[in-house]
Write a protein that binds this DNA or RNA. Structure first.
Ligand SMILES: NC(=O)c1ccc[n+]([C@@H]2O[C@H](COP(=O)([O-])OP(=O)(O)OC[C@H]3O[C@@H](n4cnc5c(N)ncnc54)[C@H](O)[C@@H]3O)[C@@H](O)[C@H]2O)c1
Ligand SMILES: NC(=O)c1ccc[n+]([C@@H]2O[C@H](COP(=O)([O-])OP(=O)(O)OC[C@H]3O[C@@H](n4cnc5c(N)ncnc54)[C@H](O)[C@@H]3O)[C@@H](O)[C@H]2O)c1
Lengths: 217, 217
DNA sequence: TTTGCACTGTTATTATTTTAACAGTATAGA
DNA sequence: TCTATACTGTTAAAATAATAACAGTGCAAA
């Protein structure tokens, strides 16, 4: 057993929750709190206190009895686990409605995970800034990904441009892709891919709303 | 054992995948295909053929040996499971960048799950249409939710308006909420809640990209 | 007309994730 | 100083989800 934990074996769901815990903790910190109980975190995240404690156990963090967890320490520890020490650069391809919403939301939020460029094909967008992020022509995609050492690409182009865009990102050496278009993409196994489609979430909600209604009858 | 399946006990993950299968199938239908194999569906969704077959088994659908599954039939069956027969109306609160992206994406896509109204506080938005959807003043929220029988609310207001918005939706009788703001909300147990924050997804990607890099060394 | 193949459908097994149970302990108050 | 309380940390059990194993079957080619 070395001193360095192997966070490699943390459950996927724990990784997701750690990110969520940190966001909640940052808000608590703003409210001038120094400590927080597992049941308080749990309430915010709609989960059980046990699950919170178990996650924290897995990352080897200990709180103080009757005081709870030190918020700043926990934020820092979560940072050492999920952040890349040197930081990780990301880019958004397609500066339309969705792309702009995401840029605006992310810009300046995370210093270890920064949007450092946007790309578009529309001349009206190219060479303009959006929420402080420069938009480049897609023609420069490969060059700028290399120059700025961009590792993560977020795809928000029109559906019919998705496959080509993903391929170019992969070829340019990107390591992670977040695809928000409804067109699923294929990537080599060494590229980490996540896809999100709101319709899945909405239809899931619709299903459970329907189930609840059927129950009533 | 009645004739009607009790889809109530379908795994949550299966529900999500059914929605995804249907989206993929609709695309295949456009391409003039009549049948599809489990391994074809699997490829699109980045899962295994076994998982596809298992999901279809759970909903009681049988394909044809050596021909695969009838696409139209499967689409219809998935519809009877996840759609509400009479349709389900939804609304988006906050017609900013994100709200507009979502409205545009959803409008006209699903006839059983329709966005029938938008709400905003900004006079420039109110009484205008966005992708064919009328935007109303939030002052009319309760009235229009009742009049139009809206069951699902999508929240895309500024963060500091989230809690109040959610409360009003609940009070107005909404049954499902999809919260896209970074502020977690609390709702009664009879309201089905989903929250999505891109930062979770991005930080998860960052984590696995980092892990992959550490591996290389 | 038989054999191999390429599929589906189902059961069995394993892995992952959540929940429960409970032991341990510092603090506050009697 | 003792005891109840309100927490944390850990192990055990249960629930959920994914994977594997394999039986069944009809077509196609020989
Ligand atoms: N996953 C979801 O929940 C979700 C929600 C809404 C929209 N979407 C999808 O996101 C995508 C963007 O939606 P939007 O509303 O922002 O659309 P949009 O039309 O407003 O934006 C698309 C942008 O991409 C640019 N573009 C076009 N081709 C390009 C290329 N080859 N390279 C780079 N940029 C290019 C366009 O100039 C435009 O600025 C669409 O595919 C849409 O279906 C997904
Ligand atoms: N979950 C995610 O991944 C994600 C991504 C991007 C943005 N966001 C969040 O989504 C929200 C919207 O982002 P945006 O970029 O569209 O912001 P925006 O400022 O462009 O839009 C917000 C809209 O809400 C309206 N509004 C303000 N108060 C309101 C109220 N009380 N009721 C109804 N409407 C009201 C505003 O007039 C505006 O039109 C923000 O909270 C943002 O943080 C989430």
């Amino acid at each position: 057993m070395g001193t360095k934990k192997n966070y490699k074996h943390l459950p996927h769901k724990t990784i997701e929750r750690l990110s969520q815990y940190r966001r909640a903790l940052l808000i608590c910190l703003d409210n001038n709190k120094s400590h927080i109980f597992s049941h308080e975190i749990a309430k915010i995240q709609h989960i059980t206190p046990v699950q919170v404690r178990r996650d924290l156990m897995l990352i080897g963090y200990s709180g103080t009895l009757r005081k709870g967890y030190n918020i700043q320490d926990l934020i820092d520890l979560i940072g050492t686990i999920i952040d890349n020490e040197e930081g990780l650069n990301a880019t958004i391809i397609g500066i339309g409605n969705l792309g702009r919403a995401l840029i605006k939301y992310l810009s300046g939020k995370r210093h270890k995970l920064e949007i450092v460029a946007g790309f578009d094909t529309n001349p009206d967008k190219i060479n303009n800034e959006f929420s402080g992020i420069q938009c480049y022509s897609v023609e420069q995609l490969e060059k700028i990904i290399k120059d700025k050492d961009i590792k993560i690409g977020i795809i928000t182009v029109p559906e019919d441009q998705t496959v080509e865009t993903a391929q170019r990102l992969v070829d340019a050496g990107i390591k992670g892709i977040l695809n928000y278009t409804p067109k699923p993409v294929e990537v080599p196994e060494y590229v980490y891919l996540e896809e999100y489609d709101m319709i899945t979430t909405l239809e899931k909600i619709a299903f459970y709303v329907k189930m609840a209604e059927d129950q009533e009858k």
